[in-house]
Design a protein around this nucleic acid. Structure first.
Lengths: 322, 322
DNA sequence: TTGAAAGCGATACCAC
DNA sequence: GTGGTATCGCTTTCAA
């Protein structure tokens, strides 16, 4: 019995062995607790069955959900995922890309981060498919899976308007952010203009999208525009920060002021009152992006991009004005 | 110039090459955009520079924090992490272990999950070090990093007692859980008995540790023991669920009833009122466990276990009784 | 200081 | 149906 035969049997490849030897081999495998060496196999056929995923903040609630979806379909397809935490900026991303390149991952998933020119070049250099999740690149032709932030924002704002609100302010995250920043501001302004003829609604931008940012911006907004009846926050965390600020200022949500968030994280249903928010299907986005990646892996032809649907999840933080 | 020389230069190993050839090689590397193949290297020296991490629920807030710490030190040591989502129970864990074994990971981190006999055997079979994070195994000699759940629970309960509470109830998660279940209940009961002489304080156990579980258990507890003045919840998520239930029943926290949580997740500071809770240093636990793993990798001698310190984080959900 | 060659564990082509 | 062997890209020993 030769190693060639064993290989054939273990891979149930190219018919060419008797049932008898197969049985023999299987017994030996059992006996010796033989485990195929994926490294050797990978070397031979340049297929590592592994993909790399880059997140700016791996423990963030958005990243967690994306990762969940990604891991799920990756594993179902017999591959593994190597996670990388690029910690937002700096050279770490390039480092990771180099590492993944050396490890010969078969594909790259790039989450919620801006693609700098150098990243793009590194990815191209690796010669493996890459897809973006919850981000996109204006300059680089990389397929992406995301919701349309401007549209979503427009939807959220329209919802507030439908409920009778007119004095609406936005607390935005980083306004320079090409994904979660100005597209969301744009959508907000567009809705305000189209539907209310308000050309210059109040927008307060923070230095991030966190709870603390929401806390601070709520105060600033209310100070500048005390007659505000509703607030659109660029993230659920900010929305909850805003509600906390309101609580401390003894302003009741939604009675005195309404709040709508963006993301629909778990915390949105856990807040008091439960947060009405614009839902991004994060887990599904992770799944879809992974499916796209594997499709590209198979067909090696240009991949489509996908705009995921968004929707309003109505809870109890928005008051209906008569 | 031979490949042997190139190898020596790229690894700056075994002195034995001239500066001149080194320069030549470096230029060529640049020119050809040469990237060493980690797979081939791994095959040669049976070192993949990769570890595997198993989580029951990758997108859970506890897991996310652990992962963050794990990824951080793993990467700083030049290794990568493959994440696995075992989805709580079932054969998936064994599957993953097999996969990791074939991929020849150099170590295993097992998070917040019970170690079944078969898992243990699989791990032993792989012949690589493994360490447990936020869990431990009574039957199997695997090193672990966790807080002492019973002690921590005792501390949390004592805190409530110090603040003057006597009618204290616990809402527990799964009571059979050998980590987050009965040890926490034990600690609670022990404190109640030692300090208040109460041999049979109310404990209500849910089917999980989630927000919903907290919501439900709060109601049950209050129905059974309406004179309760303080509640110890086995997780922050449950604590927040309890506060939500209180809110809906028009019971004020902390004025009418106090609540203390367990974990100190981000959501604890985001709740209204901010949640006083027993803090587990999750990220540090991830870091420490990873350090332990790499230590074991190097020295291949039996590894220590670590009990991490816990502490009360005082916020605003507990009232001081006179 | 440098090169030749063995070998890591698998796959696949080619003979028999 | 089965076995021999080249090969993947690298490290490392041994000679030169």
């Amino acid at each position: 019995m030769s190693i060639a035969t064993v290989s054939r049997i273990l891979n149930s490849t190219s018919a060419g062995y008797s049932e008898k030897t197969k049985k023999l081999v299987m017994e030996a495998v059992e006996e010796l607790r033989y485990k195929p060496n994926a490294i050797a196999r990978g070397l031979k056929n340049t297929k590592t069955q592994t993909i790399g995923v880059l997140f700016p903040d791996i423990s963030g609630m958005v990243s967690s959900e994306l990762l969940h979806g990604i891991e799920k379909v990756t594993h179902s397809l017999g591959h593994s995922v190597i996670v990388c935490n690029t910690a937002s900026q700096g050279e770490k991303t390039l480092d990771y890309l180099k590492l993944l390149s050396e490890k010969r991952v078969e594909g790259i998933l790039f989450a919620s981060e801006e693609i700098k020119q150098e990243y793009y070049e590194a990815i191209k250099g690796m010669n493996v498919p890459a897809v973006l999740v919850s981000t996109k690149s204006p300059k680089h032709p990389l397929p992406y899976v995301k919701v349309d932030d401007r549209d979503a924002s427009y939807t959220a704002t329209s919802y507030l308007i439908e409920k009778g609100h007119e004095m609406i302010g936005m607390i935005s995250g980083i306004k320079e952010d090409p994904i979660a920043g100005y597209p969301r501001i744009d959508g907000f302004k567009a809705a305000m203009k189209d539907q209310l003829g308000n050309e210059n609604p109040p927008v307060f931008s923070a230095r991030g999208f966190s709870y603390e940012d929401g806390l601070i911006m709520f105060r600033e907004l209310l100070e500048a525009a005390p007659d505000t009846t509703a607030i659109f926050a660029a993230s659920d965390e900010m929305a909850i920060g805003a509600m906390a600020a309101a609580y401390r200022m003894n302003i009741k949500v939604p009675d005195d002021i309404s709040v709508i968030g963006y993301d629909n994280l778990k915390i949105a249903e856990m807040s008091i009152p439960p947060l009405t928010t614009l839902s991004q299907p994060l887990r599904e986005m992770g799944e879809k992006a992974t499916e796209l990646l594997f499709e590209a892996l198979k067909t090696s032809k240009p991949t489509q991009s996908i705009i995921m649907p968004h929707q309003i999840i109505e809870r109890e933080s928005v008051k209906v004005l008569l």
